[in-house]
Write a protein that binds this DNA or RNA. Structure first.
Lengths: 155, 155
DNA sequence: GGCATATCATTAGCGTACTTATGATTTGCC
DNA sequence: GGCAAATCATAAGTACGCTAATGATATGCC
């Protein structure tokens, strides 16, 4: 029998929260027929209409392939349109359709709601503390992520 | 144009850390041909040999369907065996094969390493603080997760 | 101008996770 | 003892993330 496994601790907590929050948001947003990554994509396009898929991938910090599939679905649902780039025939510019407008307003409300629920009982100061600690953890992980090989993110 | 989207903040941090950690672990473990969920499953079986898939699903806090697929792969890789339950012909008991033994020792080392990397620069006290804040967030999310409908987790 | 290289996007294929539905038992209650 | 309900596992379909490979175009350098 090999050595004993280490205690779960911080790491599994992050995973569980990530998963629970995804579920929580999904429950709220299910009548909008939007998942959480889809919502984040819509938000990003709302913030910067006309951005390319590569640029969206950078902002969402996911692989370009993932964006291709994500936009496929959003386009099929009629919320996003790919429009050809005027200077670069390889690229597309992403725009929201008019149908997306009412969805977006509801979306921000849901996001605020889900976030408030997660933060219930934490003082303003504790929230900041949590955020600042998590930022440091993220920086550690980013540091070792940046070196190995070519990554999507610019860093 | 609808209202402005809220600031990213805590939530996206959790997602990013979750994703970055998964990558970090994956990089370390890739020569072992093990992903992170697979590793967690092996660890759980090591802690409690002979447990059923349903019981494993509870421990990993994932859906039983997910465990079915996970064990499919681990069995195909030769690290886990399904053995029929002596009292319940519906169920299987999960056991590690002998081939899994050397992998496991390496695994604990990797997990500790990845965790230390994530925690670099945080004092013992800060780590505990972070863990305790995250626990409260998790409790909030669990509270609303428990009510709606039948969940995998017992609660 | 022309060739090598880089970039944008896609396809194909894998792993993880979910929902919903189904088959096979076991359990509970009368 | 027998039937309804719960439980264990699986199957099918969807979503999302990745890697690797490909096609089309842009860019850079000579």
């Amino acid at each position: 029998m090999p050595a004993k496994p280490p205690a779960p601790g911080f790491v599994s907590l992050v995973f569980e929260i990530s998963r629970l929050y995804r579920l929580s948001f999904g429950r709220r947003a299910q009548h909008l027929k939007l998942t959480q990554p889809q919502s984040l994509a819509l938000a990003a396009i709302a913030r910067e209409p006309g951005l390319t898929q590569a640029s969206l991938a950078e902002k969402l910090e996911v692989h370009p392939v993932t964006v291709t599939q994500l936009i496929d679905r959003l386009e099929r649902s009629g919320w996003v349109s790919r429009e050809s780039h005027e200077n670069d025939r390889r690229a597309f510019r992403l725009h929201l359709t008019e149908q997306a407008d009412p969805i977006l307003s509801k979306l921000w409300a849901l996001a605020r709601e889900a976030r408030a629920e997660a933060m219930r009982g934490l003082s303003e100061q504790e929230q900041q503390q949590l955020e600042s600690l998590l930022l440091r953890v993220k920086a550690n992980l980013l540091a070792e992520d940046a070196s190995p090989r070519t990554r999507t993110r610019a860093g």
